[in-house]
Simulated assay, not measured.
Amino acid sequence: MRILVTGTAGFIGFHLARRLLRDGHEVTGIDGLTPYYDVTLKHRRHAMLRECARFTCNEFMLEDAQALNNAFTQCRPELVIHLAAQAGVRYSIENLDSYVSANLVGSYNVLEQVRQHGVPHFMIASTSSVYGANRELPFTESQRCDHPLSLYAATKKATEELAHSYSHIWKIPVTAFRFFTVYGPWGRPDMALFRFTASTLAGMPIDVYNHGRMERDFTYIDDLVEAVRLLSAKPPLRAGESDPGASPVAPYRVVNIGNSQPVSLMTFIRAIEKALGRPCICNYLPMQPGDMPRTWADCSALMALTGFRPATSVQDGVAAFVAWYRDYYGIPAIA
C-alpha cells in the first residue's frame, strides 16, 4: 500500500513509519524538522528510515501548500496518517503562533490534499488533552470535550472538528485517534521520562509538579503503533456506526488509545529509579497551568474494532527506554 505519513522525523511518526516499512508498504514521509527540541535526534530518525528504499523523505513545513501538493501528487496515497503537530502543553502558553500555524493551518492544508486526491482513509492524531476539565473517568470517546485546559488541547480539538466537517461534506472516511502519554525509545526530550532520566544520570534534581499527586495513562510506543496499524484497516464506511466515537452524520470516528491503567507519577518515578539503579532527586512544585491531574482511557472501542488492547507495563516500557538512552548517548550501565 502507498501510505503518506506526516511527522516522520518525530517520535511517533518515526516508529510508525518504521513499522509500516517492515510490513512491506511504500511510505512517503513529511517533516518540517522544527527546532522545538534537538534537531539532531530528528535527523537521526529520518536517516534510519532512509535506509529503506521504499521510504521517500520530504522535509518541508505543512504550511507550504505547493510542496504538500507535489508530495501528494507523487505519492498518490491510499492512506494518509497525519501525525505532524506542534506538541507540548506548557510550550503552547508561550508560543501560541506556532500551534495555530502547524496544528490549524498545516492540518487544513493536509485535509485539502486528502479531499483533492480522493484518499480512501484519513487518520489524524489527537490527544487525551482534549478531555480537558472532564471529571468523569475513564475518558470515553462519547464524552463532550468543550473545556480544554491548554492552548495545545484547543488546537488539537479544533483539528478534530475540522476533519469531521470534511468527512461530513465530502464523505471522507476519517479516524481520529486520541493517544494517552506515549513514551518509549527515541522519545521526545521535552517529555518527563527523557528529562527525568537525563537529570538523574547527571545528578541533577527533577521537577515534580503538583507535588507528585498526578496520574497518567502511560502508553508504550509499540502498543500505540500496533493500534494505529490495526485501525488503518478499519475505516468508518458510513455515518452512525455503533462504536462510541462514531459520528451520526459522517463516516468519522474517534478512538482512544491508552493502557487503560492510570499510573501515579511517583510510581513512574520509582520505575525510572529502578531502571537507572539510582534515586531521583525530587523538587516538588505546584501544578503547572494547563496540566491535567489525571488521565485514564476507556479503550473498549479500540478492543471492539481491532481485538487489541495496549498492555505493556510501565516497568517494562521504562526499562526499554533507559536501555535505549544509555546506548544512544554511550552511557554504560551501573555494574
Score class of each variant (00 low, 15 high):
3 I>V: 15
7 G>L: 05
9 A>G: 14
11 F>N: 04
13 G>I: 04
15 H>Y: 10
24 G>R: 09
25 H>D: 14
27 V>R: 02
28 T>F: 11
34 T>I: 08
36 Y>D: 12
36 Y>S: 06
37 Y>A: 07
45 R>G: 01
47 A>D: 15
52 C>Q: 13
62 L>V: 06
63 E>S: 13
65 A>R: 13
67 A>E: 08
68 L>G: 03
72 F>V: 03
75 C>I: 05
75 C>V: 06
79 L>N: 01
90 R>N: 08
95 N>G: 03
97 D>S: 15
101 S>H: 12
102 A>N: 14
102 A>Q: 08
109 N>R: 13
110 V>R: 05
112 E>N: 11
115 R>Q: 11
116 Q>G: 05
117 H>G: 02
121 H>D: 06
126 S>C: 10
136 E>N: 12
137 L>A: 08
142 S>M: 12
146 D>N: 12
146 D>C: 07
146 D>W: 11
148 P>T: 10
150 S>Y: 07
156 K>A: 04
159 T>S: 15
160 E>M: 09
163 A>Y: 00
166 Y>F: 15
166 Y>C: 13
173 P>M: 08
174 V>D: 01
176 A>W: 01
182 V>N: 01
182 V>P: 00
187 G>L: 01
187 G>F: 00
188 R>M: 06
188 R>G: 01
189 P>S: 11
195 R>Q: 15
202 A>M: 12
204 M>T: 13
205 P>E: 13
205 P>K: 12
208 V>M: 07
210 N>V: 09
216 R>E: 02
216 R>V: 02
217 D>H: 06
219 T>K: 01
221 I>N: 00
221 I>S: 02
225 V>D: 03
225 V>I: 15
232 S>W: 06
234 K>A: 08
235 P>L: 03
236 P>F: 05
240 G>C: 08
241 E>G: 14
242 S>C: 12
244 P>R: 07
246 A>G: 10
251 P>S: 09
252 Y>E: 06
252 Y>L: 06
256 N>T: 05
259 N>R: 10
262 P>Y: 04
270 R>C: 05
270 R>T: 11
278 R>P: 05
278 R>G: 04
279 P>N: 04
280 C>T: 13
290 G>E: 10
290 G>Y: 07
293 P>A: 13
295 T>V: 10
298 D>T: 06
299 C>K: 00
304 A>C: 07
318 V>C: 03
319 A>L: 08
324 W>G: 02
324 W>R: 09
325 Y>D: 01
328 Y>G: 00
331 I>D: 02
334 I>Q: 15
335 A>L: 15
